[in-house]
Write a protein that binds this DNA or RNA. Structure first.
Lengths: 220, 220
DNA sequence: AATTATTTTTAGATTTGTCTAAAAATAATT
DNA sequence: AATTATTTTTAGACAAATCTAAAAATAATT
């Protein structure tokens, strides 16, 4: 059974692979996990011995099938717990992640299957990210960046790209939650600032950077 | 912040103190935690340095106020989680303990207070044990052993003393759950076997050992 | 292509929690 | 009270996960 540390490495490699593609470097892992590059190298050797990763010295690292499956199961647990914390316990949007980071390491298949059932087999977590099922399959969705919409377009918010706490709080304060309906009132050609209107008529200005951090499903 | 290992030692010392009174010996800790006596001695020195325990060489150990408060908070977390697992997730009576052993180590005050609120501030867990509140206070109850009842007495089951898995499953199969109503139909003077009748009319024979492991609240 | 800069790995230590085997202290027994 | 048995502690070692500093490999630059 993998230690919490091993699980965190596997998760980090999975996430960085998504973002950076191909292989992940020692330094990007050392950044992401806030440990020294030397420690990362040590651990990579161990993970490689356990056949969880494909590791070539100086060349970076990728997950084996076994490692990938472990990562997806961790993702499943993390997102189910986030859903529970947000939907049932009413813990704030920006608070759920840190707690789920701990809960995801609890080892019990029975627990996770009962939790999944209790939550009614949710397909997406509170940040709009898809929840893998017990076999590791997850639903993809036709989502685009809010920044790609044009004036007059209408859409529903489906996910947030980077879960920065301050940004999540900002979105929440402007009623820009998951599932919120938005209308693009205006888009400034100069700096790509977008003005959106929510259901209640409230209007909010979003910088290019912000609107590139929100996924929406366009209504046609 | 205490490690999981430290938390487990503190909990063990607390539980064994309840059972054995006064101070706890190295060997009973080593039995209970399934580690060598030498390891226990090592750890006791560390806990003593941290002022979590009062430790005198060769003489045994007891908790300081700080240690006791840590133990009670762990008990609170454990029992709240057991309640959640049993009442909400419908995990079986005998399965909840092991999972709660892991969940109790998750560090988040917000989580526990939200969980407590979600469960509607329960006073007792699924095994009938009292749940300490956020200040460590818990409700005591006028409970007696089932073995102390006489023929004709009526009572409600309120708790189980030792949570042996097989015994819990036996109780459950005979509808002898927490809150179940029982009538003492007969008590054999020879070996103190007790025959009880539950609400549905079903009768069950309980050995002296079994009836000494069940707490009831007598109806007068 | 040679030099400089960066990244990665090795070497050697440290901390936490554990172990076995031996020594010391306490308890039990004759 | 002296001996034997048991419990507890010390001593020395080990695995997991980490660190810093130095060496080696790779990448970038002149």
């Amino acid at each position: 059974m993998a230690s919490q540390t091993v699980e965190n490495y596997i998760k980090a490699i999975f996430q960085l692979t998504q973002k950076e593609g191909g292989t992940v470097s020692t330094s990007s892992l050392s950044d992401h996990l806030a440990t020294s590059a030397a420690s990362v190298t040590d651990m990579l050797k161990k993970l490689s011995d356990q056949k969880l990763i494909e590791y070539i010295k100086y060349r970076g690292v990728s997950l084996t099938l076994t490692g990938k499956s472990m990562a997806v199961q961790l993702l499943r647990k993390h997102r189910l717990w986030e859903t529970f914390l947000y939907d049932k316990l009413k813990i704030s949007w920006d608070g759920v992640h840190e707690i789920a980071e701990q809960l995801e390491h609890v080892q019990s298949d029975i627990l996770i299957e009962h939790l999944d059932h209790y939550l009614d087999h949710p397909k997406f977590d509170p940040h709009g990210d898809p929840i893998p099922d017990a076999n590791g399959k997850f639903t993809l969705r036709s989502q685009v960046l809010l920044s790609s919409l044009l004036t007059g377009d209408q859409a529903h918010i489906v996910a947030v790209r980077e879960h920065d706490t301050e940004f999540l709080q900002f979105l929440e304060s402007r009623k820009l939650n998951i599932a919120a309906h938005v209308l693009i009132v205006d888009k400034l050609a100069y700096d790509d600032t977008i003005k959106v209107r929510t259901q209640d008529g409230q209007e909010t200005l979003l910088s290019a950077k912000s609107s590139q951090n929100v996924y929406v499903k366009k209504m046609n």
